[in-house]
Design a protein around this nucleic acid. Structure first.
Ligand code: SF4
Ligand code: SF4
Lengths: 160, 160
DNA sequence: GGTAATTAAGACCTTTTTAGTCCTCTTTTC
DNA sequence: GAAAAGAGGACTAAAAAGGTCTTAATTACC
């Protein structure tokens, strides 16, 4: 139940590019140094992000990586799934029809909902959001007013 | 980013005990057969649940396992964490103070919130809930009116 | 008290995944 | 054409997942 390093590094790396601005080519080396990520590992990760159309690469002298789109249009979920594959809390939620008996078991329904909640927040948080000042980000994330705003949400479950 | 088989089996196994009722000793063998879980693997899992005070064991002839408390007082989160350890989306959220630089990085704040949402639903769903008819469970889970009820929540993000 | 049935405990095993590295291309700029 | 990037693929070590197996310790019942 943990995000892999690869996924984590992908988000950090992409956020790093977001901070540099669109169109500015940044070398792997620079990103690695800034975010403390092993160089050849990040190279692999950025390769995958390139294929996924999230970043663009430029070879040769003065080459590097840059975001393929404005950072406000790239969600954290998108980056994560480009590396880890589609988010699935349970193997049975990846490919359906593996339910051995369609009787009264409701476990996958619970998993689906939990997963949905994660997708909700990850899918509505963009790289641009992550580059904003901490206080602002916290307020946005915890306020619960995502892009379909529905007021401040209850925080009564803090202790759970 | 997946729940392990052990965690999954733990919930299924405990739910199976919940269906039999409090105090009724059920042998591992029976649970395994019903839920399609390898016998010796479930034995290990139930052993851990026993130590965690979630189930009670009885050795010898006519022995078996039973829930240690009413099923309505045992949350899915509790069972899951007894097996997998405390839920943590990122290694850095398990033990704090591993933040190499406390600068403007807000990634862990996002992870914390995502994790919180999972705890919210897993922590408010009990084994008793899982034994109820499917339609009823779905309604409860998706309605969003958990034990601190705050009305039906927006489902606009269905497509995310 | 003996025996059969049941869980407890821990050592052990195999496969898969994670977290990388390394080497050889290819592309691009100067 | 030389130097400086990334692309691609093969490879690897360590850890985690997903179990099994064997030897106890209990307990009910005859
Ligand atoms: S809902 Fe229950 S029976 Fe169906 S696939 Fe999920 S765990 Fe298995
Ligand atoms: S908030 Fe950012 S810098 Fe701090 S531990 Fe998390 S990822 Fe690292």
């Amino acid at each position: 139940m943990q995000i892999t390093r690869a996924g984590e590094y992908a988000i950090m790396g992409a956020t790093c590019l977001a901070r540099r601005g669109l169109g500015k080519a940044v070398m792997i080396h620079e990103v690695c140094k800034e975010e403390h990520i092993p160089r050849s590992f990040l190279a692999k990760i950025f390769q995958a992000l390139t294929k996924a159309g999230i970043v663009r690469s430029q070879r040769g002298i003065r080459g590097g990586f840059t975001l393929a789109r404005p950072s406000a249009e790239i969600t954290v979920l998108e980056v994560l799934e480009a590396i880890e594959g589609k988010l699935a809390f349970d193997r049975r939620l990846q490919e359906p029809a593996s339910c051995h008996d369609t009787h009264a078991c409701t476990l996958c329904d619970l998993f689906t909902e939990a997963q949905h909640r994660v997708r909700e927040i990850m899918g509505s948080t963009t790289l641009a959001d992550l580059t904003r000042p901490k206080a602002e980000v916290m307020k946005r994330i915890q306020g619960g007013n995502l892009h379909n705003g529905n007021g401040p949400r209850a925080r009564a479950l803090q202790t759970i």
